[in-house]
Design a protein around this nucleic acid. Structure first.
Length: 958
RNA sequence: GCGAGCGUGGCGGAACGGCAUACGCGCCGGGUUUAGGUCCCGGUCCCUUCGGGGGUGAGGGUUCGACUCCCUCCGCUCGCACCA
């Protein structure tokens, strides 16, 4: 039966043969090697001197054991099409692919199988390289490092040391080498450097570093013997794997001082060609808000509680204060007993509800202790699940409101977070929803200090009511009221002016100041894992960190046999034992760091997976450099003068915040220290959509293998059973895996590429439909048939020029496809190429299609479907690859038309059409148009004629 | 709750404020073929008295003219979430 199929038809078999042949040839000819101007990777640079460098980058993949599914390569194909297009525009294009290969899945797989993660990781990388190569992606194969290569992570460690050996000079607003700080401290008399001992000096310097050690709360799961990421903790505060309890507990951790860069990370977004939504997500994450800090004295104590508020104008309405449960001052201010009758005022009798939800009778210390314990066991998710049910406990202490000297009770409540602001608030229940709810719960005073508009009160049916009778807090703008003391009055001022007035007053009294606060926290940088970069840090007998010299890099991961985290006692007092502690010969090291041989203890934590992905794009530029993380010539050539270096960065929106923020931060540190030439790493960011595939569930809600489901009678069935369809992430868990290998087998790589590019705009998520691939497959078949005789394999082209209409279509197509390629509108580019090919099918004679149309069509197709394009180009008589052939340029002469068909509208509705010479003047067009729609104009007066040259004419009749 | 984005045929999707549904899938009809498949040609938003009328989530507005701009609402998706 297959005898019927012509021998030279473009089918999957022929596609696969062509694709394998061209992939081999590209490899052999180093087609995608992009030369550096100098150095080891400069082969062929002399031919590229006139070519402008373009750096196209994908977010590099994690080499997973299951390999690629058809959703993965969407962005990779998009960048490849763009990169190939730019090569055909005469650019020197750097496009490469590395692997983000450290990380938890490899380690967990190692635990299960007993194989070393390096072994499985390398096997996974080999498989993914095979799949990516089979897609025809034009990567420079010399430039694909894995973050796990010691030759790579040597420089990750080196960058860590750069950050460690730097401090942030807020006056100069940039990072500087730590040596400059030491010079400054030595001469700073206030510091008293000469009187400090070695430990004090080092601790002082360490407190300025951009990488520093501190006690930070982490998700500690003793039963699993490891710290978990927030994503690995379930809503009820247990581990996702195993369902064991997870405790928040402070551990000594490495931190990165990203907060020093908060303003620059925010402001420099303006320099970047990124989508507004991603910029907004970064802005929200950084969370800059302006306001004031206000100091409240604690009654009968020396302590001062500083709060941050964005509404200092409401200070006269502050009727109580709240500290976060973890606030360090809590213990200091709690009195021995509940305030008693000797106070002789409204707080004579502390209400029972204030003493805590556990009915504590042991005095305030006990009530607070119990409440803090209760709060500590709640996960963040639990806290938010409980929503607006406010809980808290009175500390027994009072503060003094600096504007009116009123004593206000201090509470501890978990609706105030230690991680934001100062971990303490002044509560203004009249003008803050949360404070309002808490005040209602605990029957605290509610004093209005901003006058709501009359409508606001009327809508709530409480005209002229005092704030204590409002049904909710008034958070809008209004004039200040009830806000005056002997010294200052805000009454009648608008919010803005009131803020300025009270802030100035506070500053004058030394009780506060204008402040900017950020949501952004410093970056927790250590992990209790095996499969990550070791820190280039040791500890001496003072237990203080010491950076290893560059000559000792890389600090290689020691080999261990057992990766299983140590299971320790399941209680909150247990301490994690990092897997590296098991490499006993490695945990200590004898070194001579300049003061004779000594034994040092190694840092046993490893870096997070983000570390390797923070700078991989820089290593692509100079991957074989053993002297530097990147040579300045290569760096400057590819990254240019800025503001951002990478010309196009494509990846998923899931990295909108963390990766893109961390990488920007590292880049800025490197910029400040003079190691890179642009202030930003990624000039243009493009987020590709996600491909979703149909998944099917049976009546029990269990997923059934998607390949077994058939559609019939308007429903979906697995065997006889009806199943429900939904669309979701492709993968094993939804049993809807579709791999590139499946598609290669049935259609070839070019059809897969073309299909993924044609299914919709690159930035939109879209459903996968294997059935639809046949559309682009048929297009390639028709193109092939237009050029190659299916029976004999002979070339079928005629040298006579195409007819005028075809030629006009060709040049219009060239102009539009060029535009589409530049803006990554690949879906419409494909449709236009199909249209042109359909025209070619019509005009082809027995001898074939005209060469003057076929050749530009093949060239335009080349970025999208490079294998078939190369093959046709070769059969058309060209010896070299079309990789650097010029992308066609439209001839303006053929973009003009002789005649234009005008739609003729009457009152905006199309009533007729007239064809007139292009560029005709209005009177000519109007005369023809009037005749055409005469029946509509009869008896009506034309009030106005809208004439858009060469587009349309519209009669407005009345 | 706050913020952002998106709603167009049976499906994926086109459309500088100017002829809505390009291109593809599917479907219908025809041709080639012993037949099926492949391939080729034609058709395919709805209503219609065949003149035309209606139509881009719903309603309103701006405009000679609105899928496109503005307002209200509905629905879906994403991000953040007690952020003081």
């Amino acid at each position: 039966m297959t005898d019927d199929i012509p021998r030279h038809r473009y089918d999957a078999r022929l596609a696969n043969e062509i694709e394998a042949r061209w992939q081999d040839r590209w490899d052999a000819e180093h087609t995608f090697w992009a030369p550096n101007p100098t150095g080891l990777l400069s082969e062929g640079a002399e031919r590229f001197t006139d070519r402008e460098p373009v750096f196209v980058l994908d977010m590099f993949p994690y080499p997973s054991g299951t390999g690629l599914h058809v959703g993965h390569p969407l962005g990779y194909i998009g960048t490849d099409v763009y990169a190939r297009f730019e090569r055909m525009n005469g650019k020197n294009v750097l496009h490469a692919m590395g692997y983000d290969a450290f990380g938890l899945p490899a380690e967990q797989y190692a635990v299960q199988t007993g194989q070393h993660p390096r072994v499985t990781t390398e096997a996974n990388i080999a498989n993914m390289r095979r799949q990516l190569r089979a897609l025809g992606l034009g990567h420079d194969s010399r430039r694909g490092p894995a973050t796990t290569d010691p030759g790579y992570y040597k420089w990750t460690q080196w960058i860590f040391l750069q950050i460690y050996n730097a401090w942030y000079d807020f006056d100069a607003d940039r990072a500087r080498p730590i040596s400059e700080l030491i010079t400054r401290l030595e001469s700073d008399l206030d510091v008293g450097w000469v009187d400090l001992d070695d430990r004090a000096r080092r601790e002082l310097v360490d407190s300025y570093r951009l990488a520093y050690l501190t006690e930070a709360p982490v998700n500690w799961c003793p039963a699993l013997g490891t710290v978990l990421a927030n994503e690995e903790v379930t809503a009820d505060g247990r581990s996702e794997r195993g369902n064991f309890p997870v405790y928040r507990r402070p551990l000594k951790q490495w931190m990165m001082r990203i907060t020093a860069y908060a303003d620059r990370l925010l402001d420099d977004l303006a320099l970047l060609d990124w989508s507004d939504s991603i910029k907004l997500m970064q802005r929200n994450w950084i969370g800059r808000s302006t306001g004031a800090s206000v100091d409240f004295a604690v009654e009968g104590a020396d302590d001062v509680i500083t709060v941050f508020t964005t509404r200092p104008d409401t200070l006269f309405g502050a009727t109580y204060m709240v500290l976060a449960p973890e606030h360090p001052l809590v213990d200091a201010i709690v009195p021995g007993e509940w305030p008693g009758a000797m106070l002789g005022d409204a707080f004579n009798d502390v209400p029972a509800a204030w003493k805590g939800i556990f009915g504590a009778e042991g005095g305030p210390a006990e009530a607070v202790r119990r409440y803090r314990e209760f709060a500590a066991t709640k996960s963040d998710l639990e806290r938010q699940a409980e929503g607006k049910d406010k809980t808290g406990v009175f500390t027994g202490a009072f503060a003094v409101n600096p504007v009116n000297d009123e004593r206000i009770p201090i509470f501890v409540a978990d609706y105030v977070l230690m991680g934001y602001g100062t971990g303490a608030i002044m509560a203004v229940p009249a003008h803050d929803e949360r404070d309002f709810e808490f005040a209602r719960e605990f029957e605290l005073a509610i004093v209005g200090v901003i006058k709501p508009p009359a409508e606001w009160l009327a809508e709530r049916d409480c005209p002229l009511a005092p704030a204590s009778e409002w049904p909710e807090a008034f958070v809008g703008d209004g004039r200040a009221m009830n806000s005056a003391n002997a010294d200052v009055s805000l009454d009648g001022l608008a919010v803005r002016d009131a803020k300025a007035a009270i802030t100035a007053w506070l500053a004058g009294r030394g009780a506060g100041d204008a402040t900017v606060n950020f949501k952004l926290r410093d970056w927790l940088f250590s992990r209790q894992r095996y499969w990550g970069e070791p820190f280039p840090i040791v500890y001496d007998e003072l237990d203080l960190p010491i950076a290893l010299p560059e000559s000792l890099l890389p600090v290689e991961l020691p080999e261990i046999i057992d990766f299983e985290p140590e299971i320790v006692a399941d209680n909150s007092a247990s301490v994690p034992a990092p897997p590296l502690s098991r490499a006993e010969a490695w945990t200590t090291v004898e070194l001579d760091l300049g003061d004779g041989p000594k034994t040092y203890r190694r840092e046993l934590n490893t870096m997070p997976q983000w570390a390797g992905s923070c700078w991989y794009y820089l290593r692509y530029l100079d991957p074989t450099n053993e002297e530097q993380f990147v040579g300045p010539a290569a760096e400057h050539y590819w990254m240019g003068e800025g503001p951002g270096g990478v010309d196009l960065y494509v990846g998923g929106v899931e990295h909108a915040v963390l990766h893109l923020l961390y990488a920007r931060f590292w880049h800025k540190v490197l910029f400040d220290l003079g190691h890179v030439s642009t202030p930003e790493p990624f000039q243009r960011l493009f987020n590709q959509g996600m491909i979703q595939a149909p998944a099917y569930t049976d009546s029990r809600g269990i997923y059934v293998e998607a390949t077994t489901v058939v559609e019939r009678d308007g429903g979906f069935f697995a065997g006889d059973e009806a199943v429900q369809r939904e669309f979701g992430k492709i993968g094993k868990s939804l049993k809807n895996m579709v791999t590139p290998d499946d598609i290669f087998r049935d259609y070839g790589a070019d059809s897969l590429r073309l299909y993924e590019m044609s299914m919709g705009p690159l930035d939109a998520s879209r459903p996968w439909s294997t059935r639809d691939i046949v559309g682009v497959f048929r297009f390639l078949q028709r193109l092939w048939r237009n050029v190659v005789d299916e029976d004999t394999g002979a070339l079928r082209v005629v040298e006579t020029p195409a007819d005028e209409e075809t030629r006009r279509l060709l040049h219009r197509t060239i102009a539009e496809v060029r535009e589409d390629m530049a803006t990554m509108g690949f879906n419409t580019a494909v449709s236009k190429l199909i249209t042109l090919n359909n025209r070619l099918t019509q005009v082809a004679t027995a001898g074939g299609a005209p060469r003057d149309t076929v050749e530009p069509l093949v060239l335009m197709l080349a970025p999208l479907a490079p294998h078939i394009a190369e093959e046709l180009w070769s059969r058309l008589g060209h010896e070299s690859s079309l990789t650097y052939a010029d992308f066609p340029v439209a001839d303006p002469q053929w973009l003009t038309v002789d005649e234009v068909e005008y739609p003729v509208q009457v009152n905006g509705k199309v009533r007729g059409k007239v064809t007139v010479a292009a560029g005709a003047e209005q009177p000519v067009v109007e005369a023809a148009a009037r005749l055409d729609v005469a029946s509509y104009l009869d008896g009506a007066s034309v009030r106005k004629v809208i004439f858009v040259p060469d587009r349309l004419i519209n009669f407005v009749v009345g």
